[in-house]
């Protein structure tokens, strides 16, 4: 897949650079943009970031692998990120995770064959007061229970026509 930013996107990156003493600081934003446009960060994505930032591919890869929000593999349309850290665990996070795994017939870290859902087990989302919490793409689903979760899951499935 060819990775390419539009002129407008390139301009945005250029203007972000002016916020910092050195241009390397925008690397996370460049990677975010690649991930948003292409779903994940492939080797082509790393090469592209390396080229437009004039940073070595090794360094870019080092960044991609360091930060947990970057995916180096394609993921589902809906990324179900289940927090299982203590506060959520005390309020049933693992039960929710297992329910999800049963329901979608995949394990955490896997994607459904139709490419709709990926399940991940994640660390504390900073939402412990409304535990248990699942982040779906950018949104937090708080104060969850099984019923509520199944409801949301069905809505998402329906929205996608199956």
């Amino acid at each position: 897949m060819e990775i390419r930013f539009t002129d407008e996107e390139l301009q945005k990156i250029e203007s972000l650079k002016t916020r910092y003493l050195k241009p390397d600081s925008v690397i996370l934003e460049v990677l975010y943009l690649i991930q948003e446009k292409y779903g994940f960060i492939s080797y082509e994505g790393i090469k592209y970031a390396s080229k437009i930032l004039d940073i070595s591919e090794e360094h870019v890869y080092g960044i991609v692998s360091f930060y947990s929000m970057f995916n180096t593999k394609p993921i589902g349309k809906y990324h179900l990120q289940v927090c299982t850290n203590v506060s959520c665990m005390l309020r049933g996070a693992y039960e929710l995770l297992h329910k999800l795994e049963d329901e979608l017939k995949i394990k955490a870290g896997e994607t459904t064959p139709d490419g709709l859902f990926t399940i991940s087990e994640v660390e504390c989302l900073g939402s412990c007061g409304t535990a248990p919490v699942i982040q779906i793409n950018k949104d937090y689903l708080e104060n969850l229970n099984e019923d509520k979760l199944m409801h949301v899951l069905n809505d998402l499935k329906k929205a996608y026509g199956n």
Partner: peptide
């Protein structure tokens, strides 16, 4: 704000 149990700055 990533310390488990902390959700105040938000």
């Amino acid at each position: 704000e990533s310390e488990p149990g902390s959700f105040k700055d938000r």
